[in-house]
C-alpha cells in the first residue's frame, strides 16, 4: 500500500511557542536571512506561527496558527514550473527538486499560502556553526526555491527500513516540527491508513483546511478552536 502523508494541527493546543519553527530551521539547514534582508522580504522560514488578536484591550485574546507547506493535492505551484522542479510524488508529497530549479520564482507567486522561499544568497554559517548542519539534507545554493518537504529525509529513512521488513507504525515518522511540539498540537501520519491518528483527526467535525475555497485540496487539517465558557460546558 502506498502512503499518503498528511498532518493535522490542533489550534486549541497550539501555544504559539515557536519551537516548531526553530526545530525546522535546525533540521533542514535553513539559513537565517538577518534583519536587513528580512526587511526586504527575503526571510526564510519553512514554517511560521501566524498571530491573531481578537477583541479590544483589555478583553484581547491572542491566538496562533502554525503555517507550513500544505502539500496540496492540486497544488498551484506545480503546473507553473517550467522545469518540473516542483512536482507531485506518488505519495502525494509536493516535492521540490533543487537540481532542476533555476529560480523563475513562478511557484512562489502561484502559492497563496506564501510558503515557498527563494535563495537570494549562498548560505553562510559562521564557524563553528557549520558543524551543526544536518548531513541528511542538502544545503541549497543561491538561485533555487525551497520549501517544507514534510522532512522527506525522515520519511525516506523509515521507508528504507520498511523495505527491509520493519513496518512503519503510526507515529514512527515525526517531522522536526511534530517531534518538537511541546503541546502535541501537530500530528503527522499516513492518510491512507484509516486508523492512523492523523486520519481520525482529519475527519473531525472541527477540521478545516486553510483557504479551502481556493480549491488546492491541502493535506493539512486545522482543528478549530473551541470557545470555552459556562454556556457550552457540558455536564
Amino acid at each position: 500500500m502506498t502512503h499518503r502523508w498528511g498532518m493535522a494541527a490542533d489550534l486549541d493546543k497550539c501555544t504559539g511557542c515557536g519551537a516548531c519553527v526553530t526545530a525546522c530551521h535546525a533540521e533542514n539547514n535553513i539559513p537565517i536571512a538577518g534583519p536587513v534582508e528580512a526587511e526586504r522580504g527575503r526571510a526564510m522560514h519553512w514554517m511560521r506561527i501566524e498571530r491573531y488578536w481578537e477583541g479590544e484591550f483589555p478583553e484581547v485574546k491572542l491566538t496562533f496558527r502554525p503555517v507550513l507547506c500544505q502539500q496540496c493535492d492540486d497544488a498551484p505551484c506545480e503546473p507553473v514550473c517550467p522545469t518540473y522542479a516542483s512536482h507531485h510524488t506518488d505519495e502525494g508529497l509536493n516535492a521540490q527538486v533543487y537540481n532542476r530549479c533555476f529560480g523563475t520564482r513562478y511557484c512562489a507567486n502561484a502559492c497563496f499560502y506564501n510558503v515557498r522561499f527563494f535563495n537570494w544568497f549562498n548560505p553562510v554559517w559562521d564557524k563553528p556553526l557549520n558543524l551543526q548542519l544536518n548531513p541528511d539534507v542538502s544545503v541549497r545554493e543561491a538561485g533555487v526555491m525551497e520549501k517544507c518537504t514534510f522532512c522527506v529525509q525522515k520519511i525516506k529513512a523509515a521507508e528504507i527500513e520498511e523495505n527491509a521488513g520493519k513496518p512503519i507504525r503510526d507515529g514512527d515518522i515525526k517531522p522536526a516540527c511534530v517531534q518538537t511540539c511541546t503541546a502535541n498540537a501537530l500530528v503527522f501520519g499516513d492518510l491512507n491508513d484509516p486508523e492512523s491518528a492523523v486520519s481520525i483527526l482529519s475527519e473531525s467535525p472541527r477540521g478545516t483546511k486553510l483557504l479551502e475555497d481556493m480549491g488546492a485540496r491541502p493535506k493539512i487539517t486545522y482543528l478549530l478552536r473551541e470557545t470555552w465558557n459556562e454556556s457550552n460546558r457540558k455536564g
Binding site: N122, K127, N130, E141, A142, G143
Partner: peptide
C-alpha cells in the same frame, strides 16, 4: 567562504 560556498552570487 564557509560550508564550501562563498558570498559570490552564482548558482551551483
Amino acid at each position: 567562504p564557509a560550508v564550501g560556498t562563498s558570498g559570490i552570487f552564482t548558482p551551483g
